[in-house]
Design a protein around this nucleic acid. Structure first.
Lengths: 163, 163
DNA sequence: TCTCAATGTGTTTAGCTGAGAACTTTTCTA
DNA sequence: TAGAAAAGTTCTCAGCTAAACACATTGAGA
């Protein structure tokens, strides 16, 4: 009886530990939505020097309360420094991620243009896939695109075949 | 006063209509997870002639109750015919989607192999992006891959440059 | 200084995905 | 063929993401 009871206790403890673990690991989750926010913020800063919640709300097509919530989260996770009513500033960590994703975006667009996808469709696809490409894969793609560009005759013959 | 009251009523009616609309449109949502299930099911059927909940559970890395739930959903939305304890059968609609996604998967793998992404990384990326590629983009990519394959010397010079 | 637009907060809603426990059905085997 | 084992199902619940509404607060310009 005593041992059975101990087993039960042990199971409970395990469950408790597991939920604590989950609760903590949650902190580290970085979602594609967060990535999108960082991308938009970085572009706004480049465009007009700052990024107001209202601007972000417009570009992300979400309501201002959602923006505030996300800004607090991005701040808590160290991607930017956000002081209410005072504006925000990307940290090194946030800047790095924003640059990464913007680089991916433009590299992918580049490639899609080369293979003849019209820019409207290309943009749509890129937004979907840019969050799922490993750095290694992007590196290869970049190499390949560079190679293609350095051999314009190849592209010309593809374009001819592609009529 | 009467008019104000009318406006309120009108707003309420609008909201009611909107929620009805949402309730109905919900039916049409098709998620990437559903697409994954269809893909796995289709592959299992090809492999061993049928797809049991346990098999699906293994391949999807989820517990059986989750599988049952998804099967009921896929049935309700017309992607397959599912009779409990009796097995399932993809409908034309479900087959078409499964084929589409499997085609995308292999075309993307094909391309990644050509540009020199190792198959482990390639597989991982493909799983992420296959759900986000438009048919038009895939068509162009397919054309491009075919073009490359029909000009092996191009690939050779890329491989040389890529050492 | 007062007002109004912008911004922030707390709370609620909605959806997706998944899991555990307990039960039912089917299958296997002794 | 009975009865145990395996497979499948149902019910209930939880975690997470995302967004909206209602309301409170702030601050900049008339």
């Amino acid at each position: 009886m005593a041992s059975k009871s101990n087993i039960k206790t042990s199971n409970k403890k395990e469950k408790r530990l597991e939920s604590i673990k989950k609760a903590h690991s949650k902190k580290n989750t970085f979602t594609t939505t967060m990535e999108d926010y960082l991308e938009v913020i970085s572009e706004l800063v480049e465009l007009k020097g700052y990024a107001s919640p209202t601007d972000i709300s417009n570009y992300m097509n979400v309501r201002p309360p959602s923006v505030t919530k996300m800004l607090r989260r991005l701040d808590a996770d160290g991607y930017l420094k956000y002081t209410k009513y005072q504006g925000l500033k990307l940290t090194a960590k946030g800047t790095s991620i924003a640059n990464d994703i913007r680089q991916k975006h433009s590299d992918l667009l580049d490639f899609f243009e080369i293979i003849g996808v019209d820019s409207s469709a290309a943009n749509k696809d890129v937004e979907g896939i840019e969050h799922h490409m490993n750095p290694k894969t992007m590196k290869q793609l970049r190499k390949f695109t560079t190679f293609l560009k350095s051999n314009p005759n190849l592209l010309l013959s593809f374009d001819r075949a592609n009529l």
